[in-house]
């Protein structure tokens, strides 16, 4: 039995402090997922509270069939998406011509990875570019790169086919590279 299963049983048994440990263990995942969807700190905090209250209320429904992080991720994703739908906030999808744009020719090849990583301006620009990705791409890159989840787990959380997840990830990285090259071109 893994740690998560032990923790779930402890919470269900009403063990003191078990739920607090569960929240502490998964709050990073929930926060990253929710914040990347709603992009508003106050709303994200409220949704995170709602997510964990639902987790507590519905914990008896967890069947130990998938990883607990996937189960919590699915709840967080659903709650955040419902929030967006309720507020009728636009959920921009990737446009069809995403992959057709050509990299800018003006970018020189003398790219220095370490210098660029150390360049705060470039990294701030990249963070902004990530925030500007379409909502679904933002969510997927967060789960894949920041939370280091597998494609299958992400597909289960978002209810998207694995091939679609891979395609969105590819397009998101490609789009970010175009943004980066544009930025480097401006700096040159």
């Amino acid at each position: 039995m893994n740690d998560d299963q032990t923790l779930v049983r402890a919470v269900l048994a009403g063990q003191s402090g078990a739920f607090e440990r569960m929240v502490a263990r998964h709050q990073r995942l929930v926060w990253h997922l929710v914040y990347r969807i709603v992009q508003h700190p106050e709303d994200a905090r409220e949704i995170c509270q709602d997510v964990f209250l639902r987790v507590h209320r519905c914990l008896h429904q967890y069947r130990f069939e998938s990883a607990f992080s996937t189960w919590i991720g699915r709840i967080a994703y659903t709650v955040a998406m419902r929030f967006m739908q309720k507020k009728r906030l636009p959920m921009a999808e990737a446009s069809e011509d995403d992959g057709d744009e050509q990299p800018l020719d003006r970018v020189e090849d003398g790219f220095d990875l370490e210098a660029s990583c150390a360049d705060a301006e470039v990294m701030v620009h990249m963070s902004a570019a990530i925030e500007c990705l379409p909502q679904i791409q933002r969510t997927l890159v967060t789960l894949y790169h920041l939370e280091e989840m597998g494609i299958a787990e992400i597909a289960e959380i978002t209810q998207l086919p694995a091939g679609t997840v891979k395609n969105y990830l590819f397009r998101a990285r490609q789009r970010l590279k175009q943004q980066l090259e544009q930025r480097l071109g401006e700096l040159a």
């Binding site: 990294m123 990249m126 570019a129 990530i130 890159v141 990285r173 970010l176 590279k177 980066l180």
Partner: peptide, 9 residues
């Protein structure tokens, strides 16, 4: 360039 993007992500 992609490595920088992965680090940013």
């Amino acid at each position: 360039r992609y490595r920088l993007i992965l680090r940013a992500l």
